[in-house]
Amino acid sequence: MAVQVNYQTTAVIDVDPEKGFTELCPNELPVVGALEIVPELLKNHTKGRLKLVSRDLHPPKAAWDAETPANMLEPVGLPNVDIKWNRHCVLGTTGAELLDGLPPVLEYDFQVNKGMDPDAHPYGIFYHDVADTKTTGANEFLKFNKIDTVVIGGLALDFCVKKSVIQALDLGFNVIVNLASSRAVLPDTVDTVIAELKEKGAVFVDSADDIIVKNFV
């Protein structure tokens, strides 16, 4: 299904497109097919006037660190840490770098660095806490620039992308998710995630070619 967007009022969000979520860092959180999303993320960039990126920039020791891979997804129970994860995307390591082929961080119009505190592991781009009360400034930046639509891709579909989509919808944005520009940690959950987000109002396209731009200047 093709969708039309107004270039002037559309922004593109790359959620956590980092090497820590790829096979380049096999001991972190490798997502099958993650390296394949770069061309589609770059195509997304042509669909809107502004580009935003979020990054997990984690400390070397954190409350969510799993003792072994077998402990991953176990509950933690802290206010801002829900479950355990393999150590990933630690500041200063390869895992925290953006995927090769993407623009340097400073070429994006806005960046969000999240999960920098050892007792807070947020997923979405818009808030620093799990309860969605501590803003990262991304919402305010978009509203100030008169953005009403966001095109979202990145890693991973079933966690940080999903949460970012829900937050964007709750904040009143029209949300388009390009499936070709995202991959899931747990591929078996994809259909459920898509159904849930569609019910909340998100629009899904199979590729960036399905996003038709008007008012490009």
Rank of each mutant, 00 (worst) to 15 (best):
Thr94Asn: 05
Ala96Glu: 13
Glu67Trp: 03
Thr94Pro: 02
Val90Trp: 01
Trp85Val: 12
Gly92Cys: 11
Thr93Met: 15
Gly92Glu: 05
Arg87Cys: 10
Leu98Phe: 03
Leu99Gly: 11
Leu78Val: 01
Leu102Asp: 08
Thr94Arg: 10
Asp100Glu: 15
Val76Pro: 05
Lys84His: 04
Gly101Gln: 07
Ala96Val: 04
Val81Gln: 05
Lys84Asp: 01
Val90Arg: 11
Leu98Thr: 04
Arg87Lys: 15
Leu91Cys: 08
Asn71Lys: 15
Asn71Leu: 12
Leu73Pro: 01
Ile83Trp: 04
His88Gln: 10
Leu102Ile: 05
Trp85Lys: 00
Leu99Glu: 06
Glu97Pro: 01
Trp85Leu: 14
Glu74Trp: 01
Leu73Gly: 00
Glu67Leu: 14
Asn71Met: 12
Ala66Phe: 06
Pro79Ile: 15
Glu67Val: 14
Glu67Tyr: 10
Cys89Val: 06
Cys89Ala: 14
Lys84Glu: 03
Leu78Gln: 12
Val76Leu: 07
Met72Leu: 01
Asn80Trp: 00
Pro69Trp: 01
Ala96Trp: 08
Glu74Ala: 14
Lys84Cys: 08
Val81Thr: 02
Gly92Ala: 12
Asp100Cys: 08
Arg87Tyr: 07
Gly101Met: 09
Asn80Glu: 02
Thr68His: 09
Ala70Ile: 02
Ala96Ser: 14
Thr68Pro: 13
Gly95His: 04
Thr68Glu: 10
Glu67Ser: 12
Asn80Lys: 02
Asn86His: 07
Leu102Glu: 06
Gly77Ser: 12
Val90Leu: 08
Gly92Ser: 08
Thr94Ala: 09
Asn86Tyr: 09
